[in-house]
Design a protein around this nucleic acid. Structure first.
Lengths: 217, 217
DNA sequence: TAGATTGTTAATCGATTAACAATC
DNA sequence: TAGATTGTTAATCGATTAACAATC
């Protein structure tokens, strides 16, 4: 196959594949089939083969996929074969929690700067990063070549922060604030909204009368 | 229309509608059309009308939707017209951050218990909740009628926690750990994985040569 | 050679959008 | 009555799955 326009659904599965492949590699398993992959990830094997085939012929007929090779390929597709710098805006509890993931993201992405508008927060250390004032956002983004911004400020500030990020040349935003951000179409936005997640889960609670026996994940 | 099986995509949009409607109500706007809604939420008006029509005839032709009435209806659909108790498992930074949202979720959902396996954490206060040992999980869930569990423990513990939650009669899980949980099909699971979100965002970064000019959100 | 598994086409399924009669 | 907007049907678009020839 190779190319076509890739749907968002496909792109969102790639990191899931990558995570599992990293796991296999750690366990020194050299080869994996789409069937095994599908079983472990609750996905249809044909879908996995199709997803991967969009980007190239990574497997070998009769054998499966070489774990290390596929890791390399997916990392390249996701642009994770280079370090991508990330800015965290909002040094509250949530921001603090996310900054812990630097260790986990290790060689792929790195939160390299933290900002907060609240004066007493500025100058504090968060996991070896010093909280900077919002005024330095633009300059720091440009200096450090930061390409992704994470918004963990209160909803009332989120749009304003997004505007500044966009103005400073950011390319994508992960937004934890429960608001719909308005940005130019060139900016990629992902809403990581814990409150809507929880509320939609409530729909699937059993209520004695009408049963909602749906499939999972 | 009314009824049919409701797709997950529809259910996941309902909380977004609800959030915006609450906003309108606060601003004392009594009526809204699918067109206005669509514009503010970046959705197709026909889709919004169709989504709502699955559950009943909530609008009035020529007029639009009564904000208060629609709020009431959506809350009922999502089972948010009753308080739903939630358990938080994992009292680290992330768990701590999420417990702050109790104020925001206010009358709909409530985190009523927090657990951690790490002995020194037990007994500590987190936003007026006392951290309990994991051993009390089952009993507390049953006593408080907790129906949703949030997992914010390290990945290595996540499956174990999920097993205990399921055994204790939980109905749905919001999982922040970057692992695929294996649970019976009656349990509703939502993966709230910040690391895969970030990695899929990286795909959309511009790279000079091939342009990915996709739509947003 | 026999068994396994890919890459890909075709079939199916599902979700979004357009269009419009009904009606406030 | 004229204008606005719903609820719903039909059309379109897209994503998932099944099936299988190619081939290791």
């Amino acid at each position: 196959m190779k190319s076509d326009k890739i749907s968002e659904a496909v792109v969102r599965r790639l990191p899931v594949y990558l995570r599992f492949l990293n796991d296999l590699q750690k366990r020194e398993i050299a080869t994996v089939s789409s069937q095994e992959l599908g079983q472990k990830l609750d996905l249809n094997p044909a879908q996995i083969r199709k997803d991967l085939a969009y980007f190239g012929d990574f497997g070998r007929k009769g054998i499966g996929y070489d774990v290390s090779y596929l890791i390399e390929k997916i990392r390249h597709i996701l642009k994770l074969d280079q370090q991508i710098n990330v800015a965290l805006v909002g040094a509250g509890n949530l921001g603090h929690a996310l900054s812990n993931y630097n260790a986990y993201l290790k060689d792929t992405m790195k939160i390299t700067a933290v900002f907060d508008s609240y004066a007493p927060k500025v100058g504090q250390k968060i996991n070896s990063l010093t909280v900077q004032p919002m005024e330095e956002l633009g300059q720091t983004i440009r200096e450090q070549g930061i390409r992704i911004g994470i918004i963990t400020v209160p909803d009332s500030e989120a749009q304003n922060v997004a505007d500044i990020l966009v103005e400073s040349g950011i390319e994508a935003i992960l937004n934890f604030a429960p608001v719909i951000l308005k940005t130019p179409p060139t900016i990629r936005i992902h809403a990581a909204d814990f409150t809507t997640d929880l509320q939609s889960l409530a729909y699937y609670l059993h209520d004695g009368k009408e049963e909602h026996t749906d499939e999972q994940q």
